[in-house]
Design a binder for these strands. Structure first.
Length: 482
DNA sequence: TGAAATGTTGGGGCG
DNA sequence: ACGCCCCAACATTTC
């Protein structure tokens, strides 16, 4: 065995299976040093939010255990990654450095600097694609540009995509030389008080094993019904793989392959295609972010720079805390705080409400989701908020303004979702559960709902809000996507 | 991956 | 029997 030492730098790829950088490090022979760096400095305000830190804590614990089971050891360090890597290289005498790529602008900037330094220092430094099905520069339009329309992007990618085969984790790993490591608990990634994450652990199993279990369960129970069920927040039809994907605990091509296997075993085309199309949106978001790195801050369509957003901290707080007076909106915002996750249909409803009913800048919603979602992803989060605001490419048209009552009636017809998350109105009959202000005084009395006291009246009238939004959007309508 | 306004049609009540 | 009106129900268009 050679005495060569290589550093495997974990980032958005907290897994041992389907990990190209890990495989490259193993091929080197010699000792492999698995390293994770808590690097808030390189990200500033885009550092992982509070919910993500909870997940990171659990996921690193899981990764650490998996490495230990195989005779290895996860080294934890804190600080700007460039500086930390220099220290670890000098402490360990490593001569190689491998990682899987990230595609957000902060990571790209950081990694470019690290790579330049590492090459200068004579290290064998290599990066790999492992986060996405395809590298963002590999998918190009006929004239060599990047895609701006989802459907053509996904058609182009999914038609020609041939994934690498799914690969198991290595059975044994080399022992790690005695390099100092932080203790995870000293990073204080979990909330102390109030412990808003107390309900998370009942629902989520962070880590690679949990990710694989979730995928199997979904393929067994959810895939066939996915097309019909995925829009129903009152049902359990989501894959719930998003936080696992965000931290790279599972590779997208493993999901792709598993779905193909399910198809061969007789699964329906419709469910599979609909589900894979969601992976497609993730790919598309990364494609957009890579080719338009400013979208995290600035609207992609310049006309929106002068959009007449309002300033209304009280309304923002009501939205964040789930007391807008629209039950489906409030249910979603409370589910978010309780589970660190919100059903996708409801995400669209609450986002539309913040942007179009309240006329608050999408960046405020994006920031809240970034802090509270376990699956907050640098690409998905920004691309999706721009999509709802209508200021991205291939975005929701300006005139698409969700009516929270109709959306509730359509996608939560019995009101089960609202009842679960907004208990103070749970006794209302289905007919009025999405519009308590239309319940008769007798019904309100019988069900113990005191509007304006036990549950708020609507923050704003829907018809008025719709009119106001259309007027605001009229100022940027020129060249609107249709 | 909408919603509301407007237009059209056709059945039924009714003088 | 006939014309008229009302208004669901559905289709189209507009935001």
């Amino acid at each position: 065995m050679s005495d060569k030492r290589s550093i495997l730098w974990f980032r958005q790829d907290l897994r041992l299976s389907d990990n190209p950088a890990l495989e490259a490090a193993l091929q080197q022979g010699g000792a492999m040093l698995p390293l994770f760096v808590l690097d808030d400095e390189s990200f500033g305000p885009r550092r992982p939010g509070a919910a993500q830190r909870w997940w990171m804590d659990r996921s690193l614990t899981a990764l650490s255990e998996r490495l230990a089971e195989r005779g290895s050891r996860l080294i934890l360090r804190r600080g700007p990654a460039g500086q930390v890597l220099k220290e670890v290289v000098s402490e360990s005498g490593a001569s190689a450095l491998f990682w899987n790529r990230c595609y957000d602008p902060q990571s790209i900037l950081r990694d470019r600097t690290v790579k330049a330094w590492a090459k200068d220092a004579g290290l064998d430094v290599r990066s790999f694609g492992g986060l996405l099905l395809a590298e963002p520069w590999e998918v190009a339009t006929g004239d060599g540009g990047s895609y701006r329309v989802y459907s053509s992007f996904w058609r182009a990618l999914s038609r020609s995509y041939r994934p690498p085969p799914t690969r198991p984790p290595p059975e044994r790993l080399s022992p790690v030389p005695p390099i100092a490591s932080d203790a995870l608990k000293h990073w204080a990634l979990r909330p102390a008080q109030p412990n808003w994450a107390s309900g998370f652990a009942d629902v989520w199993e962070p880590g690679e094993t949990g990710a694989h279990r979730r995928l199997s369960a979904f393929l067994r129970q959810g895939l066939a019904r996915y097309k019909a069920e995925r829009d129903r927040p009152d049902r359990d039809g989501s894959s719930r793989l998003s936080p696992h994907l965000r931290f790279g605990e599972i590779a997208p091509q493993r999901i792709w392959n598993a779905v193909q296997d399910a198809l061969s075993a007789g699964a329906g085309r419709a469910g599979a295609d609909t589900f894979l199309a969601e992976l497609g949106w993730r790919e598309f978001s990364y494609h957009l972010l890579f080719h338009n790195p400013d979208i995290a801050r600035e609207p992609l369509r310049p006309a929106f720079r002068n959009f007449p957003w309002r300033d209304d901290p009280a309304a923002l707080a009501a939205w964040q805390e789930g007391r807008t007076g629209y039950p489906i909106v409030d249910a979603g915002m409370r589910q978010l705080r309780s589970l660190g996750w919100m059903h996708n249909r409801v995400r669209m409803i609450v986002a539309s409400f913040l942007i179009k009913h309240l006329l608050l800048p999408w960046q405020l919603g994006e920031a809240w989701f970034w802090d509270t979602l376990l699956d907050a992803d640098p690409a998905n989060n920004t691309a999706s908020w721009q999509w709802v605001a209508g200021c991205g490419t291939d975005a929701a048209p300006y005139f698409r303004i969700f009516n929270p009552v109709l959306q509730g009636d359509r996608f939560d017809p019995e009101g089960a979702y609202v009842r679960r998350w907004v208990p103070e109105i749970s006794a209302l009959p289905a007919k009025v559960i999405h519009k308590p202000w239309q319940a008769s005084p007798q019904v309100l009395q019988q069900t113990g709902v005191r509007l304006g006291e036990s549950y708020p009246r609507p923050l704003i009238d829907h018809a008025q809000a719709r009119k106001r939004a259309l007027e605001a959007y009229a100022t940027v309508k020129q060249g609107a996507t249709v």
